[in-house]
Each structure stands twice: as structure tokens, then as C-alpha cells.
Amino acid sequence: MTTTDWLTWTACASLAAWLWLLLGQGGFWRTDVRLPRRTEPADWPPVAVVVPARDEAAVLPDSLPSLLAQDYPGEARVYLIDDGSTDGTGGLAARLSARHGGLPLTVSSPGEPEPGWTGKLWAVRRGIALAREQTDAEYLLLTDADIAHGPHSLRELVGAARSGGYDLVSQMARLRVVTGWERLIVPAFVYFFSQLYPFRWVNRPGRRTAAAAGGCVLLRADAAERSRIPESIRHAVIDDVSLARAVKRDGGRIWLGLAEQVDSVRPYPRLAELWRMVSRSAYAQLLHSPLLLAGTVVGLAVIYVAPPATFLYGALAGHAAPLLAGGLAWALMTASFLPMLRYYGRSPWDALALPFTAVLYLLMTVDSAVQHYRGRGAAWKGRTYA
């Protein structure tokens, strides 16, 4: 088989893959999955907001006041669980509460995690335990310390959960896209996530697909008890997906979509921070399987790298078949990325960089596997999990 034949077949395989993705992967490329229609309940149920925090003093002034200022008609209380911070996170949270007022705040520390627990879930465990001791909360809002909420965020989450009869309502926070690396990598991060877990499939009761976005998860308290959250997922590195799977597996109704009032304020000024964010859990996503890793590398290469490569080869060498097949595959890939770029307010021209971004994600995934076999997998803020 000649080089031209091989590249032609590769271009055709990529084109077939893109046709399948666009037509058969749950409309993953669409960005219109927002909070479902909701009506305000006659009585607003009590809510406990649990915020696990470890060394978050840099972002807390931009996030915690937004939680304390929630315009919620019912009873709500915030529990910030200081997970062994060394930068004064707990004290800063107390000062911010005294300065801004609003919802009552409790700051607590759970101590070091017991064996078999990740730090975040250990902190969530402490927050839920306090909420059960001190309130009769019907819902638990699990939200990260770097997440800022619009003033009506909690109200709309509870309204959607009550109206739709959902046990779990999660919104993918709008991540920051200020620096060049953020603009290159962040929209693609959400795009790839929705490709793995199409929101429409997640939201369909009859499908096994389950996922949540850990920055913003509203969970019914009785669903948490039924699914033994967080004990049943205490070891999970990808805790949000594991949580959603546990709830859906036990018969709960879940919903996941893109946020309009929930934003991450965490900056990623350099590639290194974004690299760590992705690589710490990428190999865990592949179940630490070398076979799945190899398949992922080949798949990313065929789906994202082959279209521009075969198109350019066909254009330069004057061969129509790879030119046409690769060009059409590239066009479909580019078009599928445009809705996500619009959601993030980015230029459509940024879509042309998607193949390069995919190569970066490929390298991050390989690095995640390398770090795992070196015994440094899933390292985050001074902790490394097996």
C-alpha cells in the first residue's frame, strides 16, 4: 500500500468517525442544554451548602461572598470545610463572613483523611455530617471553593430540582478564559467532556451514561443517604462522575448542563497549571488500562490530527482523495467546535487550533499514565492518591 493509499484510508476513517460523532453521540456539540424550565415551589426547602477547601485563600475573596449573598427565600447555611490548608483559608473565610454578612457560615476542619479517602471527599463527608447534625436540609449544594455563583443561582437550582423531580442537578461552571493558554485549552476541555458524557444522554433516565460537574452539584439529602454519598465513592479521583453514577445506579434522576450563573474564578496563567489539572485524572478516566490508553492515543490521532494532516498532504501532493476526505472531516470537526467557542465568547477562528489542542490533551493523557507508573499519579495540592 502506498503512502497516498494509506493516508486516503486514514482520511476516510476520520471522516466516518466524525459523521458518527455528529449524528450518533447525543448531540454532544450543542450548547443549549441549560437549566430546565422551572416553577417556584410553594415552600422553599432548607439547603446546606458544603464547600471543601484546601489552600484556597487566593480565590476565596472572589467566590465565597457570592455564596453568602445568595437571594434564597428559604433557610440556607454554608459549611466551609478547611481541608488542612496552610495559607489561612479557614481564618480568611471567617473574616469574609464577618465583613459581608449574608447566609450563616460554619468553618470546620475534618483532620487528615483516613486511608482510602481522597481529601476532597473526606472534607465533603465532614460537611454533610455537620449539615445533618445542625439542619434538616432537604438539599445539599456541593460546590468548589473557586466557584462564584450569581445571586439567584441557588434559587434556580432548587427550583429546577423541585420542578423536574431531580435527585441531582449539576451545572458545568463557566471556566476562566483570559490568558492565551486558557483560551486554547479551556473551551476544548468542556468540549471533550461533553463528547465523553453527552449531556442529553446523562439527562435521559433510560440511559446508563452518568456524569456531573463537581464545581456545582445540588443533591437531594435522601438521595445522598440512599447512595451512601460520599462513603461509597470515598476513593474516587474523578469524584463528580462517580457521584452521578452512584445516584443514577440507585434509581435517582440526574440532570447536567452548562451554567449561566456559575463561574470558576481560578486562574490558569501558565500551561503547567492546566497540564496538571488534566493529567492528574486523565489516566484514572481510562481505568489505568494500557489498552484503553493505546486506543485513546490512536483515536485522538485519527479523529483530530488526521483531518488537517491528510488535507495538507493532498493539497501539496495533488491527490484528490485525501484532500477531499481530510478536508471534509476537518470541516465537520471545526463546525462542531463553534458552538462551544460562542458559549465562551471566543472567535470562530480559534476552532482551527483544535487539532493542536487535541495533541496537547494526548500528551497530557500519556503523561498522566507515566506519572501513575512512577507512583505520582493523581497528585494534587501535596497529596498523591494510589
Rank of each mutant, 00 (worst) to 15 (best):
G326H: 08
H319N: 04
D136A: 15
S281E: 03
G150K: 12
A386Q: 10
V297L: 15
L312G: 12
A335M: 06
A42R: 14
T106I: 10
T39C: 01
P205H: 05
R37W: 05
L68M: 08
W349E: 06
E182I: 07
V107Q: 10
L15R: 07
S97K: 13
P307A: 03
S347E: 04
E133N: 12
G327E: 05
R228I: 04
T334D: 04
M340A: 10
L363Y: 00
R126E: 08
D263G: 13
R183H: 01
E40C: 12
K248D: 06
G101R: 06
T4Y: 00
R54I: 01
V59Q: 03
A351I: 05
H152E: 07
Y313C: 06
K248I: 03
S109V: 02
G314F: 06
L352E: 03
A244Q: 06
L19Q: 09
D62V: 09
I81K: 08
N203I: 08
A272D: 10
I229Q: 09
S97R: 13
P104V: 13
T357N: 11
D136K: 15
R249L: 11
D144T: 07
P46N: 03
A335S: 09
A294L: 13
G27W: 00
Y283D: 02
V305H: 02
D263W: 13
G314K: 15
T118V: 14
T8S: 15
L362H: 02
G318M: 09
W18A: 07
V186P: 11
P36D: 01
L271W: 05
A160F: 02
Y385G: 12
G252E: 07
L64A: 11
I81C: 07
M333Q: 15
E114D: 11
W330E: 06
G111L: 12
L15G: 02
G375V: 12
Q285R: 15
A259D: 04
Y191R: 15
A353K: 13
L96G: 08
P45D: 02
D55A: 15
P73K: 10
L154D: 04
H149Q: 12
A369G: 09
H100Q: 09
V366N: 04
Y197N: 06
L243I: 11
G375A: 14
A301L: 13
L105T: 10
A321G: 03
M340Y: 05
L300C: 03
G345L: 08
R374M: 14
F311T: 06
W201C: 09
S85R: 08
R77F: 00
W349V: 14
D87E: 05
A317Q: 12
Y166Q: 13
T106M: 13
A301I: 03
L154Y: 01
G326Y: 02
A211Q: 10
A309V: 12
E273Q: 15
P198K: 14
V50M: 10
D167P: 09
A57N: 09
L196K: 14
S281L: 12
A379V: 05
Y304E: 03
R125F: 01
L105E: 08
G127I: 05
P113E: 10
W275L: 14
L105F: 02
D146H: 09
D350P: 00
P115A: 15
H319Y: 02
L80Q: 06
M1N: 07
H319V: 04
M172W: 00
H235Y: 02
R183N: 09
S109D: 01
L312Q: 04
R34N: 04
R383G: 01
